[in-house]
Design a protein around this nucleic acid. Sequence first.
DNA 1: AAGATGCCCAACCGCAGTCAA
DNA 2: TTTGACTGCGGTTGGGCATCT
Length: 526
Amino acid sequence: MSSFSSGEDRSNDNQSSENNLKKGPWTAEEDAILAAYVTRHGPGNWNIVQQNTGLLRCGKSCRLRWTNHLRPDLRRGAFSKEEQNKVIQLHALMGNKWAKMAQEIPGRTDNEIKNFWNTRLKKRRRIGLELYPDGIKKPVVNAHNSETNLVSYTHRDSQVGTSSGHAVFNNLGNTQNQPLCVQPISMVREDMKPCVVPQEMQRQEQKVGTSFGHAVFNNSGNTQNQPLCVQPFSMVRQDMKPCVVPQEMQRQELKVELREELQLSEAGTSSSVQHVVFNNPSNTTPNQPLCVQPVSTLHEDMKLLSVKPEEMHDVPQELQPREACTSSCVPRVVFNNSSNSQNQPLYAQPISMVPEERQPFEVPEQQHMSEVPDQQRQFYEVPEQLQLDKLPGGCMYDNYACSGGPSSVSALPPLPPSCDDLAFDESMILRDNSEFVTNPCYEPRSPRSNGYLESIFYLPKVPQEKPDDFSMLEELNLGNTRENSEQRKPEKEEDEVGYGDLIWIQKHDDGPYNEKVGIVHPFLKP
DNA sequence: AAGATGCCCAACCGCAGTCAA
DNA sequence: TTTGACTGCGGTTGGGCATCT
């Protein structure tokens, strides 16, 4: 059965007779080679690791070694009492679903949990103890469901959730073998009870967010039956579909006052929502990345810890951004984890860890102003190396969001293919607000502004056909009316809207449209 | 001191699921 | 639809170390 059981395998210096691949314990040299390779190329494609590194290990062995030993987010050492209790709770709930249990216990692998359980199992059997401690009952299999289907979880005090800090929502109405919805207890309102997961939560195509800016997403790529995840819009991937959160599932807004030490002295923010950079409180392993979380999801027990640059590690290749945002006045870069199918938090990196071509730029100190009057508002070109390949407009940042914190960097939408050739065309006006709401780039530019980007469009430099109706522009008070377009000055004033400008309109909930009309022309101005 | 036993845990295997060609 | 590569998962084995006899 095991490789070690074969005398042939063990002979010949642990070399597999088939492909000359090595078996048995890994050496430090092999670990280093594998770690370096994965750091550079990211995990996956394990079968080519051997070809590219010369390691005499099969892909499977490499994957296992990385997953169980070399991953930077692993905790080492004995299971704490809390972890032990959690394993017991989870086993009562799930049975031998080691991988699922590992997802609930950060830093522990399925193998570790399995080993722990099997050891414990043997011990308790030998001394004649019950498998589960008093108060935790075996899973009760619903007679209607198969064993692999859903179970009701019985807990001593019949309260919401489990003592391990999770609430389990039983979806008895689920006829499609859908997962239970599990939420941390801290996210569950006191009056919430385990309940049937409403039909609309069951992996349908779902829409809309909650009243406080969160969306529950169907994790369409989820093959692990993980619970739905709740994320702020800004962290939403393009391919994710939001859904309505039923009233009873909505959680209390967690009001956590930002302690002074959390307030952006060390922490970078991503630009358009209030984010705080947190160290993972359960992280006792060095080289853990920081995590970035929106303020609204903070828990009381989370602490901001200062993390030294040397304690951070490179963001794996596959996590590195195609759509990177930077916080600009602190030496960190926040990466969008766009390929992250596990919906993990964003990563923050110190500049030193960022590949050179991604180096962010420093915002001149005089621009770190706490208040920037609108008339002084400026846009600055983002250095070319920060600009996004797929967006001809590249990135820009404005200093409007500088309210004691860093400036923001946002990506511009793609321009029309050839700006100069285009006639004024209303179809170019992007009126669909959802375009911007669903795109993280178009979150409100500043939490302070309490508005959102409503429209962005391009005024051609040389209109081929004079627009018949400028009423929209007049209504928006752009200063680009029929009259002044006909008597257009050859050289317009700075910041005056005219032909050839890309216009954005930021709509305010409590103000007129024209209050936040601006000009975006980062490629025309330095 | 030496062998026996128990425990821990790394590493393997086979199977099943997914996905792209 | 089929096939093969790749990946994830659960079960199992055996080496190494500590403790016991």
